[in-house]
Design a binder for these strands. Structure first.
Lengths: 137, 137
DNA sequence: TTGCGTGCAAAGGTTTTGCATGGCA
DNA sequence: TGCCATGCAAAACCTTTGCACGCAA
């Protein structure tokens, strides 16, 4: 069982307080440092690895490195993330349609989706409007 | 407009001939070299970047680097990918339920999913069985 | 006291970039 | 002929790892 070090608490608490943000290991380490609670980058990575394995955080692989986000459901419910590929915004989605889709994939396609690792990428409402050809508000 | 170099053709044709495989830039370069059609790794990356922008290939970000896969639909239809996080297998999914989900997200959540950039991660039928607690066949 | 956790620095791997050369149009 | 594309090597970047020390239990 893991020791309850202050670094461990710091990383988890930091993400817990920002459930709507997906952050890189670097950003987390940098912020903690400024918060008078410095944690080495390697340690941040090691804690994130554990937190992900424990189902406490989402991990989002992007082309520019992984992002980590607190998982409010503790991995129990199908809580998906939407990621805007234009502005990078992360949007929580706890929708009955997604749960239905998961059941369908499991039953009919024999594939068990892991909501914590699955990110639906696309365009959010704001960016969708911006990219429309008929007018840049 | 881009020049039609033999390197460009080689990369696209290579992916076109393997519509079921998601490959890394390194694997592509290595295979082309063995096929008597060597293309520099940097060039492979540059061509993949363009092909993705043109909607000809999927790009899958994984923790161990990006994978690229031919996009049979040319980006027109909602053709999703399932990725087994255990064995790495990529499974095409062209399912009416997914199209319905996309329409729902667009209409009710104002989010426009990009199927080419979206990968549903989870466990395939084989690996799902393996990880079950009751017996390792 | 035991042994996991930490920090630092170095290594590992992927992807990008600079620059001179080559090849398509 | 003009200019984009290529190849090579170096750089940039993220992430992991080795090792000695520190700290929770």
């Amino acid at each position: 069982m893991p020791y309850n070090t202050k670094q461990r608490q710091a990383v988890l608490r930091f993400l817990e307080e920002r459930p709507e943000e997906a952050l890189s290991a670097c950003e987390i380490a940098e912020s903690l440092r400024q918060n008078q609670c410095p944690v080495g980058l390697a340690t941040v990575y090691r804690q994130l690895e554990r937190l992900e394995a424990a189902g406490r955080v989402h991990r989002v692989d992007t082309g520019e490195g992984a992002l980590y986000q607190f998982c409010a459901q503790g991995g129990r419910r199908a809580c998906f993330l939407l990621r805007c590929e234009s502005c990078g915004r992360m949007i929580h989605l706890d929708c009955v349609h997604l749960e239905a889709l998961c059941r369908h994939l499991s039953a009919d396609h024999r594939f068990r989706v892991d909501p914590r690792r699955t990110i639906l990428t696309g365009l959010c409402d704001v960016c969708c409007g911006e990219e429309a050809p008929h007018g840049t508000a």
